[in-house]
């Protein structure tokens, strides 16, 4: 379909859940500039499996 990809950068930025879920395990570096909210901001990535 006409979905965005590195090779089709004009494509539609519409992604279904299965497509989105495949990226979860690799994104484990902590984002910059998260506020200091101990209740919710984790130091280490917690990749919770999602069925």
């Amino acid at each position: 379909d006409d979905q965005w990809s590195p090779l089709n950068q004009e494509g539609k930025k519409q992604y279904d859940r299965t497509f989105l879920l495949q990226f979860q395990p690799d994104c484990t570096s902590k984002p910059q500039g998260l506020p200091d909210i101990p209740d919710i901001v984790l130091e280490k990535a917690d990749v919770r499996p999602h069925l």
């Binding site: 990226f23 979860q24 690799d26 994104c27 484990t28 570096s29 902590k30 984002p31 998260l34 209740d39 919710i40 901001v41 984790l42 990535a45 917690d46 990749v47 919770r48």
Partner: peptide
């Protein structure tokens, strides 16, 4: 995902 994996 980087955000989601780092929040409670």
């Amino acid at each position: 995902w980087a955000v989601y994996n780092h929040i409670q």
